[in-house]
């Protein structure tokens, strides 16, 4: 059992970062750094990290500087998870043969965006989970290819305007709904899969610690509100995240051993989806008469999904 940091309040949290520095080139208001800091704070163990190509990698390791005080590898867009899996497999082999000089077991974590997880890295993550490496994959889910100019990904929600699914007089933007990665990863039989958001930081730290301590491949999907591509003011990152979790648009829940689903946050006052949509430029066009029907569809879909999650939780299967 690894030693875990005890973080009681936000003040503790804000002063506890020692392995990921605030000095980086991420946009002001980017949620990536909050999430990464939470992951790195969730353990005192040694860390073997990878970052797939994306905003996080580009902005935190600009020669001659690095924000990381941990073993860190940047590899191809698609296979950050695989690099970590290779390191984990090698560590296991060396340990089995008694060749390791030290007794400490590191944690293996791969960070990737939604493009590198939902799209190009999908089969590689699936392979890691099927082989059962003792690692955690963290998705910094900003629902868009933010690093290359705001193209849609398969995490981009329906109705969102992106550079390759632009909204206009003939289109309301993205035509398909977000891929359900949580369900897919849970279907691999992973011991721990969770969806988290930085505004619920205690919930998030708990989920990450549970993931890190589980034996086997675990998956964290972290909402990372993107000030640049979602088009909101940089100071509103946490407010936007609150709107998402309090309207059930981004429900926080975990699935244990691929079966037991637990909802980990229930908003006291449930907000309508309008507030979340209206707060972001990427959904601005949905409020035009032509596309207003989409808002109703959004609400119905979000309600249906919440209903489904509750029933799954009750069913305990």
């Amino acid at each position: 059992m690894s030693e875990i940091k005890k973080i009681k309040n936000l003040k503790d949290f804000s002063t506890s970062a020692d392995r990921f520095e605030g000095a980086n080139l991420l946009c002001p208001g980017c949620a990536h750094s909050i999430i990464v800091r939470e992951v790195l704070n969730a353990t005192n163990d040694d860390l073997i990290l990878s970052a797939s190509t994306g905003c996080l990698e580009v902005c935190t390791a600009v020669y001659p500087y690095t924000s990381w005080d941990a073993s860190w590898v940047h590899i191809g867009f698609e296979n950050g998870s695989t690099a970590v899996a290779g390191a984990e497999a090698m560590h296991k082999a060396l340990k089995t043969k008694g060749r390791l000089k030290q007794d400490r077991d590191p944690k293996f974590v791969s960070f990737a965006g939604d493009g590198a997880s939902y799209d190009i890295g999908f089969q590689w993550i699936s392979g890691c989970f099927e082989r059962g490496h003792n690692m955690m994959h963290v998705v910094l889910d900003n629902e868009v290819y933010a690093n290359t100019g705001g193209q849609r990904s398969s995490s981009t929600p329906i109705g969102s305007s992106a550079t390759t699914s632009p909204a206009g007089s003939h289109s309301y933007g993205e035509k398909r709904n977000k891929k359900d990665m949580i369900a897919i990863m849970a279907a691999h039989g992973s011991p721990y899969v969770a969806q988290v958001a930085p505004n619920k930081w205690k919930n998030m730290v708990k989920a990450i610690q549970q993931g890190l301590n589980a034996e086997g491949p675990t998956f964290i999907n972290a909402m990372s509100a993107c000030t640049t591509e979602w088009k909101f003011a940089p100071e509103d990152t946490i407010a936007i995240s609150d709107l998402a979790t309090d309207s059930h648009i981004f429900p926080l829940y975990e699935i244990i051993d691929g079966k037991q689903l637990n909802i980990t946050y229930r908003p006291k006052n449930v907000l309508p989806v309008d507030e979340y949509l209206a707060a972001q430029g990427r959904f601005k066009h949905l409020f035009k008469d032509q596309y207003k029907f989409m808002i109703k569809e959004w609400q119905d879909r979000v309600d249906a999904n919440w209903e489904y999650l509750q029933r799954r939780e009750e069913a305990k299967v």
Partner: peptide
Amino acid sequence: YPITPSSEVMHVISDLLPSVGGASIQ
């Protein structure tokens, strides 16, 4: 697929193709 420095080719063509009956897929 998005990749710097060629992404603009995809941006522009995804805008142009639908109007001439073509298809552009990311």
